[in-house]
Amino acid sequence: MKKLDYLDELEAEAIYILREVAGQFDKPALLFSGGKDSICLVHLALKAFRPGKFPFPLVHVDTGHNSPEVIEFRDNLVERLGEKLIARQVEDTIKVRKLQDGKGKFPSRNALQTYTLLDVIEEFEFDACIGGARRDEEKARAKERIFSVRDEFGQWDPKKQRPELWNIYNGKVDKGENVRVFPISNWTELDVWNYIKRENIELPSIYFTHERECVLTDAGQLMANNEFLSLDETDVIVTRKVRYRTVGDMTCTAAIESEAYTVDEIIAELKDSKISERGATRMDDRISEAAMEDRKKGGYF
């Protein structure tokens, strides 16, 4: 017997985890951002549950700072699959909870998403939330379990993680607590792209090169020029051929200069790339060494 190819092995592991969620929880949800990782999760869910329906809705926490292409892609996908989508707006949370919106030139709502996420978990009493986070993204993520138990405030306590052995997942929680589940924990960015290629998975157009008007930041990053930014006359606006390596709040997610027009070209580009996915695209992780650890402790994904 031949050993499975590594992509088959990663796929099998992810499907196994998705089915464990279906088997262990009463009210699971799949957090869907419209990014490549959560699109892969949807593809894996099709393999895990068809011809049945997904045993969970897709939940989108919308910062309101998404590019329209992503929202359109999301709506088309949901319609094509006939699955349920629950979308919640960070904008509404800000109003209801009287929160301070993001400030400054690039008013990110990345931190504010946590409020909306915790609210939607409470509203539907979700006991498990599946997410597309990967361990190769960031050091704190590299330490997190596949089944990551959160307390009733959504907090991650790295010192109280449950041991997780073999392929045995303990998703037992009390009412009010929930488990964040990461089926593609062991995938790298390149694995995701190789899988997208192999499975011929469709993605939002912003992943591929296109001309875009951008603001050149002091750190040399390219931020899409859009209505959410507060620019002044000193800002440099340039038009460049760019694509996104990651989809997120457009005020804190940078585009990268790229000529990659196809999945093959993206894979070639990534193999050459000297910069990590989060390093290339995220402004928020540059703030401090433990930024992600702190956000996770506060209930973030």
Binding site: R135, D136, K139, A142, K143, P158, Q161
Partner: peptide, 19 residues
């Protein structure tokens, strides 16, 4: 060593996965 406590103490406390 991905956690703050690990960096501070110079020890590994929990499993880290690397690829």
């Amino acid at each position: 060593d991905g956690l703050r406590a690990e960096r501070e103490q110079g020890i590994t406390i929990d499993v880290a996965y690397k690829y």
